[in-house]
Every structure is written in structure tokens, then in C-alpha cells.
């Protein structure tokens, strides 16, 4: 097994599918890799690109020795193109898509294949997505387009229908905990592992923002029992990054739903579910890179969550 993939055991079944597709020559020309944040979709896409571009692949596995593998590892490979926002949180603009299409029209430099990776797909605005459609349908020879999305439902339907959807599974909480332990992260609550992949937790651990999860849950409890004022809570959420704050709220809210269900309070669980929708909606907007007035959004959201 390729060294990069074996680092992520939950990806093994999907990698096996990929290998089969390549050996049978049935790899789709466009595939949409989707799954929750932190499941290693980007790593997987890069491993696929490496296998497709390798000079001497063995059973669709990159050799890690050749020049092509080396160039890909240092992100210098001329036949792998990453179409991504120039700045984090900004959309992918149509000009960037046009550049990528011009690149697609040309033959590969290293004689094997071309791989275009688009991530995150949600950040592609409508015009940019439409510009891609024709190439998604009939790409040039030996071309693979890998599209990465967290929420494929947010992607333009005409774009989604042109791709084969590959779901990157979320490891079970137990698997995640084992994996995180090997990376030296131990203090993880199971509830956190149901909504995000271990890679994201690892990144948050490394960035030192893992404690925030606990903080959000404590503050949320205080807020719901009316020990913490709305504006104070809103301010504290603003001090975090949006994705951290939204993930934190989502995880905490899901725990509330589980608790309500366990104590057979159906009506309460129903209400929590509706409130969860509001959080998810905001998360979708954030993913698509919408330019929002966040202080206002937090206040509005907390008003909805208020007991």
C-alpha cells in the first residue's frame, strides 16, 4: 500500500476501489470526492494524482522513486493542476477556471496523463462552474478531473451529475481515537468525532484550538441555562475562526439532540433539529465563501437558539 494512504486506514476501502478502477481501465474522467472535513480528501486526491502520473506504477500504486513522484511530492509536477482559491475563504473566480481550461487543452508535459484537482468545489461560483461543464463532459484524452467537496448538495446540480460521486467515509469514533492516539492526541471526546474527520481535529490540536470545543460547550450550557448573556456568548464566538465556532456549535447541538432522544423528549428533540438546521445553513454559507457580517449572524443565530 502506498505510504501516504496507509497512514489513513479508513481510506483503504476507497483506495482499493480506485486501484480496481485503474487496473480495469474504468476510472471515471471526472470524480467528485466528498466527505466531511478532516477525512483526508485532499491527501487522497494527491495520492491518486501521484499514482496516475507515476512512471512505473505497480498495480495503480505510485513507486515513490521516479522523477514524476518526486515532482508531485514537492508540488512541482507540471501535469497536476490545483484549482483552488487564491486566498483562504475567497471564491474560485472564472479567470482562474479559464486558465485551468487553457492548461487542459494542452498536451501533458511528461507524456502520461493530466490531473486537475478542484478544491473546495463549493467555492466555485456559478459562472465558474458553468465554464467547466463542457470540459467535465468531454475532457481531453488521459485526463482525470478530481473535484473535492464537503457538501455535494451545495454544488451545481449540472456539475454534480457529470461526475461519479465517491464518498470518503468518516472513520468510526473508535477508529479515529486510535488514529489520533498514534499522532499523540489523546484528550478527545467521542461526540467530537461524529461530525469531523480526525485530520481536522489533529490540525486543531496542532493549532492549539482544540480546547475551544470544550469552551464552546461550557458556554453553550451556561447560555442555555441563562447564566451567560447572549451578547457575551456572541462575542466569544466571534473571537474564534468561523469554521471552528460553527463546528463547535454543531457538535454540541447534536449532543443535545441525542440527550433529548435518550430521555424520550420527542418534542424537544424536534425543536433542536430545527435549530440545528439554522447552524447548518450558516455553515453552508461559510463554506461557499459568502461575505457575511459575522457579528450580526452570530447574534441572529443565538436568538434562534435561545431557550
Amino acid at each position: 500500500m502506498s505510504s501516504t494512504i496507509s497512514n489513513y486506514p479508513w481510506q483503504a476501502p476507497l483506495w482499493h476501489d480506485f486501484q480496481q478502477a485503474v487496473t480495469l481501465n474504468r476510472l471515471p474522467h471526472a470524480l467528485l470526492l466528498h466527505g466531511l472535513a478532516g477525512t483526508g480528501k485532499g491527501v487522497f486526491a494527491k495520492a491518486m494524482a501521484q499514482a496516475l502520473l507515476c512512471e512505473q506504477p505497480l498495480e495503480a500504486m505510485a513507486c515513490q522513486q521516479c522523477r514524476s513522484c518526486h515532482l508531485l511530492k514537492i508540488d512541482h509536477h507540471p501535469d497536476a493542476y490545483y484549482l483552488q482559491p487564491t486566498e483562504v475563504g475567497k471564491g474560485i473566480k472564472i479567470d482562474a477556471v479559464r486558465d485551468a481550461l487553457a492548461w487542459l487543452a494542452l498536451s501533458p508535459q511528461q507524456n502520461r496523463a493530466k490531473v486537475l484537482i478542484i478544491a473546495p468545489l463549493e467555492q466555485l461560483n456559478n459562472a465558474a462552474a458553468n465554464a467547466l461543464l463542457k470540459n467535465l463532459e468531454e475532457p481531453t484524452a488521459n485526463t482525470t478531473l478530481i473535484l473535492i467537496a464537503e457538501q455535494p448538495a451545495l454544488v451545481l446540480a449540472t456539475l454534480r451529475s457529470r461526475c461519479q460521486l465517491w464518498l470518503m467515509p468518516l472513520p468510526t469514533p473508535a477508529e479515529s481515537q486510535v488514529w489520533l492516539a498514534t499522532q499523540g492526541v489523546t484528550k478527545i471526546e467521542e461526540a467530537w468525532l461524529t461530525q469531523q474527520g480526525p485530520l481536522q481535529l489533529l490540525a486543531r490540536h496542532q493549532a492549539g484550538t482544540l480546547d475551544q470545543q470544550q469552551l464552546i460547550e461550557q458556554q453553550l450550557d451556561a447560555f442555555l441555562t441563562q447564566k451567560l448573556a447572549l451578547l457575551k456568548f456572541s462575542k466569544s464566538l466571534q473571537s474564534l475562526t468561523t469554521s471552528d465556532a460553527l463546528n463547535g456549535l454543531q457538535v454540541a447541538w447534536q449532543r443535545h439532540i441525542t440527550l433529548a432522544l435518550q430521555s424520550h423528549q420527542q418534542a424537544l428533540a424536534q425543536q433542536y433539529c430545527e435549530q440545528l438546521n439554522a447552524i447548518m445553513h450558516l455553515k453552508a454559507l461559510a463554506l461557499a465563501g459568502a461575505n457575511l457580517n459575522w457579528p450580526l449572524q452570530w447574534d441572529a443565530l443565538l436568538c434562534q437558539l435561545k431557550p
Binding site: 522523477r67 518526486h70 515532482l71 512541482h76 509536477h77 508535459q109
Partner: peptide, 10 residues
């Protein structure tokens, strides 16, 4: 080794 020069075409 990091330089992406062209490969001979078959």
C-alpha cells in the same frame, strides 16, 4: 532534481 523539464515524447 526539482526542475520540471520536458520529457522525450514517444
Amino acid at each position: 532534481i526539482d526542475f520540471p523539464f520536458f520529457e522525450e515524447s514517444p
